[in-house]
Design a protein around this nucleic acid. Structure first.
Lengths: 333, 333
DNA sequence: AACGTTTTCGAAATCATTTTCCAAATCGCC
DNA sequence: GGCGATTTGGAAAATGATTTCGAAAACGTT
């Protein structure tokens, strides 16, 4: 109801100019201790707090780090936690932004970054960006990026190695007809996971069969139709490696609808180990990706960049690990 | 490197005034189709995107909803997911803000809200606010607030009922010496959980014993010392109800350090059912709180308020439920 | 061709703040 | 008390957009 107090209100109440208030609040040199005290008194009384927007407009520094995500699904939420912890005792505030409106359209990253950068945030972490953000006016670190371009600092996990582990595990269990529910082909992680899948097959002397591959796009809703298509084949696979946990959840849901028992009739392994993976019933076997650490690492790199330091290495890859749970079993004979 | 294109750059390149560019970009009435096309061409070429900060400065609407959290711990992260889903196909963007720097100081909510409101966000959701935000220039909905003040719309879960369930369950298992690790006394949820605990004891005819109560403040680090104090008593409790899952995790950690086996030597039950609860080993018995739904409900209320509607009810309470897992067992005789 | 109406565009104000520069005041010193 | 040096505080510009208002141009009507 009562409009916020502006710097003008404070100035009027304290009987000084707005410039003086600004200096007092920001501890700038050039006003006496007495005046500062008087101004701060009024600030206290009126509950004045400078507008982030207005101040960032003039002075380009804001001490706010932005993290740009397509939406707040489990993967980016975990990364957010990691960034938050890493930044907890830094001097930076954290602002997470998700452009709901234009999420589906291509290039949301560039647009959002452009809208926020320069003003509002001093640096940005972008989660799964698919465009080369050449228009970087501020330091940017990408997590799980589209491409390993040399100029943009990146953090990712070992998608190829993880996919290798996942597929090998299914093979060790005795599976031979192994399906693959792929991710977003525009993301580097997705192509690497497919490459790992194919490598593991090749290592085991199993012929790669394109008929066993579907594209699920990493999201639950988009994965359901391809999952249904895969499981409706007359000679359907006995096991499926899903490129991420949300796809795995989708395929398990579809399996249930088709009356298939997991893991008796179908083994499923995911990728990520999102919190939901261990909560579901049966709990999901998956490849663990250190999501919080991805976020914390990216935050650390960004802070270094903001301090004007040179990064010792521009691309960091973190290891993955197999987590055996209850959605995998040897195939039925 | 290359600085962002501003509206002036576009105007100069298109040979029109900045006013015209603004109208073209925002589809305002008053310029010819030909000019609009020409301007949009240049916009495309230069990759111009209006600055959120600058535009929000003049026109007070931004179509951005803010969610203010102390930090991105599991509880608020879950709420964030819920808000994100609810807002996914609305016309609002979502901005989550955590003031790392001043998180510990009192009144961060009022400060952050004040810095962002008026400009930057059209409405706000505040998670666990402890101050009465009287200076609300924009619509605000509070989740799990300090107090049930009549004027601020709130969403919370049934803390009293949940605490009743939790304590009753421990009693049913045969426990009589039941400790309580309390939350932040300034939060309404914390006092309600303690009330539920005491009510359950009273119902069972067990005398309330203040010596079995410690204050853990809802956070892992702050809960460890009181947890250690509780478990170091000569006649320590056989079971502990922790006011939230993070406190429960802390007490289990302390128990391990003291060589106590959970649940053999000590039963522990938490509150929230954060994702981590089911992942730990042994998995945590807890009271499930519909965190995503809390967020989604708050988002819905806020959108209604922004549409100028009157809320049918100003305070919403969602039910909780017991989740039996592995950290609870009958007491050893 | 004169006149009124409508369309199209630009100049300038505005939003809340910071910062630069300048004038006034104070101070120290002889 | 006068003069230079230093403090102190204020006026104004600048930040990047939107919007109001007014001027000019185009257009239609008689």
């Amino acid at each position: 109801m009562t409009p916020r107090a502006t710097i003008h209100d404070v100035a009027a109440a304290a009987g000084v100019s707005v410039a003086t208030v600004s200096k007092a609040v920001n501890g700038r040199y050039g006003i006496s201790a007495a005046t500062t005290a008087r101004v701060l008194d009024v600030v206290q009384q009126l509950g004045y707090e400078s507008s982030l927007v207005a101040s960032s407009m003039r002075s380009r520094r804001t001490s706010v780090i932005g993290i740009l995500v397509a939406d707040f699904e489990p993967f980016s939420a975990e990364i957010l936690k990691g960034v938050g912890v890493a930044l907890a005792d830094s001097r930076y505030d954290l602002l997470a932004y998700s452009g709901s409106r234009q999420r589906e359209t291509n290039g949301w990253e560039r647009r959002s970054l452009s809208r926020l950068s320069g003003t509002l945030i001093d640096g940005a972490i972008m989660v799964t960006p698919t465009v080369d953000t050449t228009s970087a006016e501020i330091p940017v670190v990408a997590i799980d990026p589209h491409t390993g371009r040399a100029d943009l600092p990146t953090v990712e996990s070992d998608s190829f190695g993880g996919a290798l582990q996942a597929t090998r595990y299914l093979i060790e269990l005795g599976h031979r007809r192994i399906g693959f529910l792929a991710g977003r082909p525009d993301l580097r992680s997705a192509t690497l996971r497919e490459a790992g899948y194919r490598q593991a097959l090749a290592d085991a002397g199993i012929q790669f069969n394109p008929a066993l591959v579907r594209v699920g796009l990493y999201k639950r809703e988009t994965a359901k139709a391809p999952a249904a298509s895969l499981l409706s084949m007359t000679d359907r696979p006995t096991a499926v490696f899903a490129a991420n946990d949300l796809s795995a959840i989708a395929i398990i849901q579809v399996a249930a609808e088709l009356g298939l028992d997991v893991p008796r009739d179908l083994s499923v392994i995911g990728f990520d180990d999102i919190p939901e993976a261990s909560q579901m019933n049966p709990a999901l076997t998956t490849i663990r990706q250190p999501m919080k650490k991805l976020g914390a690492t990216a935050a650390g790199m960004l802070v270094s960049l903001l301090n004007g330091e040179i990064l010792p290495q521009n691309h960091i890859r973190l290891p993955t690990g197999l987590v055996r749970r209850a959605t995998t079993a040897p195939p039925q004979i």
